[in-house]
Structure formats: structure tokens, C-alpha cells
Design a protein around this nucleic acid. Sequence first.
DNA 1: GTTCTAGAAC
DNA 2: GTTCTAGAAC
Length: 759
Amino acid sequence: MEMDIEEASGTKEGNPVLVILVGAPGSGKSTFCEEVMRSSTRPWVRVCQDTIGNGKAGTKAQCLSSADRALKDGKSVFIDRCNLDKVQRSEFVKLGSGPQIDVHAIVLDLPAKLCISRSVKRSGHEGNLQGGKAAAVVNRMLQKKELPKLIEGFNRITFCQSESDVKDAINTYSALGPLDNLPNGCFGQKSPDAKIQVGIMRFLKKSEVPVDTASRANGIKESTSQTHGNVDPCSKDTEKVSSISDNAYLESKEVQGQAVGSTSSDANQDVPTLAFPSISTSDFQFNHEKAADIIVDKVVEFSNKIGNARLVLVDLTHKSKILSLVKAKAAEKNVDTQKFFTHVGDITHLYSTGGLRCNVIANAANWRLKPGGGGVNAAIFNAAGSELEYATKEKAKSLSPGNAIFVPLPSSSPLFTREGVTHVIHVLGPNMNPQRPNYLNNDYNKGCKILQDAYAALFEGFVSILRTQAEQTNLRNENLGNQSLALQNKSESCYKNHFTNTDQKSKRDADHGSEKSKKYKGTQDYFGLTFTDSRDEKVDSEHRRTDGSTNKAWSSWAQALHQIAIHPEKHKDVLLEISEDIVVLNDAYPKAQKHVLVLARTRGLDCLADAQNEHLQLLKKMHDVGLKWAEKLLHENASLVFRLGYHSVPSMRQLHLHVISQDFESKHLKNKKHWNSFNTAFFRDSVDVMDEISSHGKATLKDDDKLLSMELRCHRCRSAHPNIPRLKSHISNCQATFPAHLLQNGRLVNASSEPKNND
DNA sequence: GTTCTAGAAC
DNA sequence: GTTCTAGAAC
């Protein structure tokens, strides 16, 4: 390894600097390093991919771990590779996540001609890029060049566009003593590249935040004072990005008062807008093609009834099938894109993170109009707080498929204050999912009709809200006589009737009054539902409880462990140990060399959330048995390290303790969720679970989905990696000691720590 | 939980 | 063209 790196002498003091050189072959990166290291009084390490493999070219992973090691030693590091695109740089930037490491870029942005002529002339260059090929390669590389931005995570960027700039930069860094720091910011950029890179957003995933480009640019220029120190390395980038985008919004869009009935403005934010999810296509498994046709048809039908208002179909991801289907069909039919468009984002954060002001949102409700369940319904009830629950209860107790009710949102609701939502319209569509109430058994004749009714009811509800708000506005603006909504008069009264009749007290009237109940006579029998309180409980038991938070529905595949716990005698072949209250078995898809499960046999103890004081003895026993097996396995292989713990939200029913070796060497460890379920706070150490239950009566769950989609970080050195294969290749080599947290309270079990726990 | 696979990323 | 992810189906 000594050959991989060149070290300059110096004392081990001050904040290390991670300098990422950016430049084509022949731009003078190696020379830059050599010059600085020759005269610097800092300890520098040069990491060069061309030589890191015992003097030959090596891998990026080798560079990463070598640089990481040097930084941990308190040394400053040069990353001597081209680093011309942001993705290449990003992993190196992340090495600087640790506290008090400054991440700098030096951009050797010299004329291509110069780089090429140097490359061509060069003989015996470390990168072996000589002769005629060099010109083509350098040209190709320079075409793809992406200049670094502060938002990628740099504290300081120095642009060198001439040889004298390079000389200046060499002087600056040569003079950088062990105790000095250089000011943050961008230096030397003469022709600012106006293009804003969003690569970091891609890296961070899920951040489908359309950030205003101009503001973002400002944000970058103004972000020079951002510091790297003392920020949780796991969340640093996320925080940085979100703070920048938040600022961008604050700067570019004054947070307005609630836009109820705003009259005239050319800003789209003042245009009344209904955001709605696709009804029935998710959990209710309605055919997407058919649903898309219905959505577009209904939109067309209503687009001339909503004045200047807008309808927006929202889904969480760009990959949404229904979104792209609807988009295509709407385009075919030439639907006015001012009035109807699709939007990717969280329907509960349309304004705060999407910049899209929607005063009305639709909820894909359940028939009992209760929170919970999942998807949009759970999200909206969550985001709106108890206010929506109460307001909904006031209006109705249940909803039949094909209907909608709107609920004014109290101004104390977070959805109102944060997002400017004034009304939620609950809609219930047809259900094609045999697991859910009102299953239509694939009868698309009925299903399509009900879905059409559902959208009609939804849009009618919106029109009704528009009308009310227009009236209020007119009252307020009597003298102005401003009519912002061009509603069709003849439609108004019937919308009004439809809607005022849809509440609980007149539910039957509403059903009688609508066409669908005439065509589908016996609606109540067919659905097996009535809408009186007295029958609610019966229906409840028929369809399982949908509102209880503790009653999770377990799919058949998730029952395997449960079956084993209940009938261990039938599964003796796979069991390592059976006792009255626990069984032990190997995980069927081990995520490490050794991965054992200690399974509780108690009925009704499905997951960590169910564990209470009364289970403390059992948890202790599970832990002890887990330790015993770890010891046994350590006896076979003393180099292993074990960790014992639970998943905050398990996929498999029946409480089970994971006893897993920390090598994570397994072909079954395939994706981000696998990794993060064992290597983020989602994994709850058994010792902590026992502590929490004995002191609070319950375990703390870290069940945020974000944990499972977090960036991939080495569980030892915390370095970040772009994908699973790279991560696995890194962890197969990483020898760093485990983070301090894991070394405490016996969270890790190894051969030497076994008799007594580490402090 | 896994498998399969489309399509994004490289 | 190959690698990798993530969503759907089970």
C-alpha cells in the first residue's frame, strides 16, 4: 500500500482538507499536487487512481478507501483523477462528511489545446495515455465536463483558467500551514457557467423537488458560508439541499396568506386548483388503461365548467403508470394544459415542496372515512391532523363507492397553514382488490360506471367549492363586481343539490337522487353495506378492522415465521432449537455469513410495536439465546462480529430477533432496503429495546420509510457508496473500527468482548 | 420477504 | 451493450 500514496512530511494538526482536483489529462493535476507537497508544511496524501494499484491503475473504490484512511489519520488529501463529472466527484465529496474536514475543488480548466499537446507529448505518464489516442480521449472527456458547484458539497472551489491561475493556486495551497484554513466560496471563475447542476438531487433520490433555477443559482452563490462541521454525516447532504431549496422558495415566492377566493392575479398560485390522486388504481387495483380513459373523459367534461380553475392529477413518482397514461390520453384529446395537467409529488406537500398551490385536494378515502389504511388516505389524514378527522365526522360517517363529500379544512390544520389547502374532498372509487371491502370481482361494467361517478362527484364537489368561494369573494368585493369564476349557471344548482345532500343524515336521499343507484338497483345488497351506525360493526368484522393502527394485514408470504412459531413440530427440519417460548432458525435468505433468527412463539406478538412490559422476560430470553448462538458461531469463526436486534417494522409476522454477523457477505443482500434495514436506525439493537421497554413500556420504532431508502453508507467507516455492488466491494475490504455508538453497551458481540461487554 | 423485469444509469 | 434499481406481482 505504501506505493499507492505519496506522503509529505509534516505534523498532524489542524483541520484536514480534502482537495478534489478536476481536470482533463494533461491539465496538470499531478504537477499541482507535487508542487504543493514539495513545499507544504501540512501532511498531504496524494491519491492517484493511475498508480494506486501497486503502481498501476486501480479502482475508484481503492481511491476512496485510501483517501478515507488518510483523512481519518488527520492528513490532507489530494484526489488526483479527472473527476470531470459530478457523479464521479460525489463519492469523494462525501468522504468529507466527517466533522472539520474542508472539501475543496481545484478546477484546472485550461485550454483543451494545451492539455492535448501535453498528453500527446507525454511519455511514460502514469495513466498510460500517450500518443495519438490522447487527443481523442481528452476531447471526449472535455465535452462531457461538468464544472463543480458548491451545492455538490464543496466548501471552496478554485477555478484556474490559465497557467498563471494555476501558479497562484499552487502558492495558496503551498502556503496553507497545518493550522490555517482557506476562506469558503468560489474563486477565479471568469465566465460563470450558468447551468445549474442537479446531480446531487439525483444522488439523494426521492427529491423530486422542482427547484426554481434562478433562485437555486442565487442559493449557490450565497451558500459559501455553509460549514461542513458538526453535522450528522448521514444527513448532511440532505439538510444542505433542503435548506437551499427552502430558501429558494422563500426568496422566490412570498409565502402568501391562504388564497381563499383570491380574485385576480396573473400568478398561477391564485388560480383555484384541485389536486387529486388517481382513484382506485392503487390499492383497489383498478385497470389503469380504463381508469386513464375515465379520468380524461371526466376532465374534458368538466373543464368547461370550472372557469379558470385547474385540475391536477398527482402521483408520487415519475414512473407512475397512470400518470403517463393520462398524460398521453390528455394530449391526444388536446386537453387544455392550463386547466389540466399532471404533477409528480406528495399530495400533502404540493406547495411546500412542489411549489404548486392547490386550495382543494382530493382524498382516496375508505368507506368509513377513517384515517389509516395506507397510501393517500393515511398520508392526508396524517398531514391534516385531527382537525380533518373531526371535520369529516361532522359531515358524514361513511361513503359509498362512486360518491364524494367535501370537507372544509379548519384553519388550524397543518395542511391549511402550510399548504394553503382549504378543502379536502373524500372520494371512494370501485374496488377490484379481493382483500378490500366492496370487491367487484372484476366486473368492469359496474366498475367503470362507479369510477365515472366517483370522478363526476369529485369534480362536482370542486365546482361547488368554487361557487361558494366565488360568492364569498363577491361579498367581500361588492364594489368591484369582480367575477373570477365563469361558472355555468344552469349547472350550479344541481351541483349544489348533489353536494349538500351527500352527508350522512341524508345519505339515502343522495343515493336515490343519483343515477347510479337507479341503474344499479340493490346497491346496498350488492356491496353488502348499509350506512347506518347499527350495521357498522358487523361490516367491520366481515372486512377485518381497517382503522386500528395495531392491526396490520399480513400477506400470505409474510406468515411463514408465524406458521413456524405456531407449529414448530412441522418444521423441525429447518429449526436449530425449539423450546416452549422460542424457536431458533437460520434466516432463509441470510444477509451475512451468519444470520440466525430467534423467534418468539407468543401468539399476538407480531412485531416490535406489540412488545410491552409483559414481554420483557421473553425479550431477555430471546437476547440470551441470541447471544448463545452468537458465541457458538464465534467459536467456529472467531473473526466474526455479531449484532442483535429487531427491525422497526418487520416484513414477516411474528416477533423475531436478528442475530447477524457484520460482514454482510451474502448473495442475498441485494438492495438498498436490505442494507438499510440492518444499518440504519431502522435496526433496533436488542439491548436498547430491552432498556426502552423496561423504562417506557414500549420500544422506540424508527419506522420512517426514508431510513430504508437512505444513501448507502459503510457501517464501519461511514463512507457513502453509489450502489449496492460498490458498497459490497467496499465493505469486503473496510477494516475501520466500528462507530463509537456500536461499541457501547454490548451492541456488538465479538470473540474477545463476549465474557464482558465493552463499556 | 423474493422474483421478475422495464427502463434508467452508466 | 451492460449494470443496477425499483416497482409489480406473488
